[in-house]
């Protein structure tokens, strides 16, 4: 690979005189393309048949639900967080952005009072829904814990069967009844 000539950073701001040999000669692109096409044909070059369209779009990890692994600890932690976050509060503190601080806060309070009739029923509805959701997920947690206990019990019983019979425990009911 021959060493590339060191580039001069020519530009309109440098004041350097530009070299323009052949600047006015038009490059016969069509002729070059014809030669290239002939070369491709002669040498039998083939286009690779892997298409970009066939590559699936994969989203950020947290959106790729198929890759998620369940963790009881993470679930419990999120459940605790959910119960902290579930209530929407309409009484947020008000701050002033301008120099007329007190006047601004007065007007913001007045506006909040005026909008209350519309906003509070919406927030109340949202809070009820959040409460229902949180309770449902708590019940789901309780159910998963129960499932975990039963899985532990099943494992224990399977081991006992294996030890007593001297062969691996059958997992279907038909085998167990023999």
């Amino acid at each position: 690979m021959e060493e590339r000539e060191e580039k001069k950073d020519l530009g309109p701001d440098t004041g350097e005189k530009m070299e323009n040999p052949g600047a006015d000669e038009t490059i016969d692109i069509e002729s070059i393309m014809d030669e290239i096409r002939a070369e491709i044909k002669r040498k039998g070059y083939k286009e690779k048949e892997v298409r970009f369209e066939d590559i699936n779009i994969s989203y950020a990890d947290d959106l790729n639900v198929d890759d998620l692994e369940f963790s009881m600890d993470v679930y419990k932690k999120q459940l605790l967080l959910l119960n902290i976050q579930k209530s929407v509060n309409t009484n947020k503190p008000l701050y002033a952005d301008s120099r007329a601080g007190k006047l601004e806060i007065f007007f913001k309070k007045a506006f909040r009072k005026c909008a209350r009739f519309y906003v509070e029923p919406l927030v109340s509805g949202q809070n009820e829904y959040n409460e229902t959701n949180a309770m449902l997920l708590c019940q789901l947690y309780a159910a998963m814990k129960r499932v975990e206990e039963l899985e532990t019990k099943v494992d224990r019983l399977e081991n006992m069967v294996e030890q007593l019979s001297g062969r691996p425990a059958e997992t279907d009911n038909e085998g167990a009844r023999q």
Binding site: L10, P12, D13, M18, N20, G22, A23, I27
Partner: peptide, 20 residues
């Protein structure tokens, strides 16, 4: 060919010169 292309590009670059 490379020099010919660069010469054409140098000429076009002048059209985007700061003063102009």
């Amino acid at each position: 060919l490379r020099k010919q292309i660069l010469a054409g590009q140098d000429k076009r670059l002048q059209d985007f010169g700061k003063e102009r």
